[in-house]
């Protein structure tokens, strides 16, 4: 939902980042307002996943230039855990398996860290169990997964549901979902997309990073951005994704070759 008067949640200006000695982001600009759903599309290697990791604060990436402001605050100055606590969420493309750490305990510690930041009281084991059982419904997840180690032995679909369950518990204001559709069959995609739709509201925003149109059939974006060579090359509405689906990414190469990137202002 686009409302020009909605508050800006996230503002990225001329963001450059590298991993080791390789420059990957080369001037990303993006403004995200409350209530909006953005899709960032592009080929492998275009910098989509790097953008999501830089926003979440992954230590392997170094920001070399640019500014990221989250609700007026310098996001890049904060440790990853602080970013999460104030409402920035990264849904991982490959959720990490952590043998020996109980999923339930992990979810409870994470939820309480976010609640403490919001000034809400800590949930004890019982209160948290009530909450988590209710939120499981968002992704139709089997409670048995709570008793297992974090993501250990989960199928691709189960891992992605677990990501959305975390999002449902943490209630972020900006959720960046990195390739949430990868590795999902049709049913799992429908459930995960359904979860994202249920959680989207007028006060928060979602940035979907994806290769494929099929996720956007289930979650309708307000904006579609095409990334290439570390920048957002073009921005449009949902029809841009359909266009990409039809024409592929070859035109991106041509446009890059012509060195004439389209101006990037987002409403």
């Amino acid at each position: 939902m686009i409302r020009p008067d909605a508050p800006v949640l996230l503002e990225i200006k001329d963001l450059h980042a590298r991993v080791e000695d390789k420059a990957i982001l080369k001037g990303v600009n993006l403004t995200v307002r409350a209530g909006e759903i953005h899709a960032v599309m592009g080929r492998n290697g275009s910098g989509k996943s790097t953008l999501s990791k830089v926003l979440a604060g992954h230590p392997a990436y170094t920001v070399t230039a640019g500014v990221v402001t989250y609700r007026g605050q310098d996001l890049l100055a904060l440790d990853p855990e602080l970013r999460a606590r104030i409402g920035v969420f990264l849904g991982f493309q490959y959720p990490v398996e952590i043998p020996g750490v109980s999923n339930l305990e992990f979810l409870r510690v994470a939820t309480n860290a976010r609640r403490a930041e919001q000034g809400a009281e800590e949930l004890d084991t019982f209160a948290f169990e009530d909450l988590v059982r209710e939120r499981l419904k968002v992704v139709q997840m089997d409670p048995a997964f709570l008793d297992r180690s974090v993501n250990e032995g989960f199928s691709g679909g189960e891992k992605k549901r677990n990501e959305i369950l975390q999002m449902a518990l943490l209630e972020p204001l900006v959720a960046i979902l990195d390739e949430t559709d990868s590795g999902l069959d049709i049913d799992a995609l429908r459930i995960v997309a359904g979860g994202v739709n249920q959680l989207a509201n007028a006060d928060n925003a979602t940035v979907l990073i994806t290769h494929y149109q099929r996720l956007l059939d289930a979650i309708t974006p307000d904006y579609v951005h095409v990334m290439a060579a570390g920048r957002i090359l073009r921005t449009g509405g949902k029809e841009l994704a359909l266009d990409l689906e039809e024409r592929g990414y070859d035109w991106v190469d041509q446009e890059l070759a012509a060195q004439a990137p389209v101006p990037l202002e987002v409403a």
Binding site: G57, P80, E81, A84, V101, A110, V150
Partner: peptide, 18 residues
């Protein structure tokens, strides 16, 4: 693993203890 835990709001020392 540390980053995954931190990205959910868990402090670095708590994450390494976990």
């Amino acid at each position: 693993e540390l980053f995954y835990l931190q990205s959910r709001g868990i402090a670095a020392d708590q994450a390494s203890a976990l």
